[in-house]
Amino acid sequence: MSTDRTDYEQGLSTRRAILGDAWVDKSLANKTAFTEDFQEMITRHAWNDIWNRPGLAHKTRRIMVISVMMSLGHWEEFEMHVRAALQAEDDTRLTQEELKEVLLQNAIYAGVPAANTAFRLAQRILHAL
């Protein structure tokens, strides 16, 4: 049976694999006494309990997160996940073509205004890489 600490460590490993060490190190360095419990919770539950479930590949989960962030207009998280997906060095990496298809597909279901913003932000990220 797994412990909270094991769940945290497994979640932290997944979080680092998906977002990259630099981003995770920055997030953890910025935690405070007020945000520490939140960081622990998302690492255990989002990054371990959900991301490490066997039902979907991490690449599929990346696509889903990008789509949901676009749909809800959570642009900071959208940019973070797009950047991480384009820079991944494993089989979870999204190509520029795959990202474009994700945004086009989501434009139909989330709306053109969301797609306008998503394409603008993604283009800025692509130019910066």
Rank of each mutant, 00 (worst) to 15 (best):
E40L: 00
R61C: 14
I125Q: 07
V102A: 06
I108A: 15
M70Y: 09
S13K: 07
E101A: 06
R5L: 13
G55L: 14
L126R: 10
R15P: 00
A46R: 03
K100P: 02
H81S: 09
V24C: 02
R62D: 10
R124S: 11
D4C: 04
L19Q: 07
R15C: 05
E97L: 11
L72P: 11
Q96V: 12
H58N: 12
N30H: 04
P54A: 14
R120T: 13
H74M: 15
R124V: 01
N106R: 15
S67A: 15
T92H: 08
S71A: 15
T35H: 02
A17L: 09
E89N: 06
V24N: 02
I50S: 06
H127M: 14
E76Y: 08
T43K: 01
G73D: 09
S67T: 15
I66A: 09
H74P: 05
D7H: 06
D37C: 02
N116I: 05
L121Y: 03
R83S: 04
V112Q: 12
T3H: 07
G20M: 02
H45G: 04
W75D: 09
A17G: 05
L12P: 02
G73Y: 06
Y109S: 13
R61K: 15
D91M: 04
Q10S: 01
W51E: 12
D7F: 04
T117A: 05
A88I: 06
R83E: 07
K59V: 10
E101L: 11
I63R: 10
G11D: 08
I42V: 12
V112G: 04
D4M: 09
T43G: 02
I63P: 09
H81D: 12
F34A: 01
T14G: 02
H45Q: 09
D7M: 05
R93A: 14
D49L: 02
E40V: 01
V82Q: 03
A128K: 10
W23M: 03
D25H: 00
M64I: 15
A118P: 06
R5Y: 08
N48L: 00
W75Y: 10
R53L: 07
R124A: 13
D90M: 06
H127T: 13
W51F: 09
F78T: 08
A118F: 03
D37Y: 04
A17V: 02
N48S: 04
K31C: 01
A84T: 03
R44I: 05
H45E: 07
Q87R: 08
H45T: 07
T95E: 11
W23L: 07
L56P: 14
K100V: 07
H74S: 15
Q39G: 05
A114N: 10
L72T: 15
V65N: 13
G20D: 07
K26C: 00
L126A: 04
M64Y: 13
L99H: 11
T35R: 00
R83C: 01
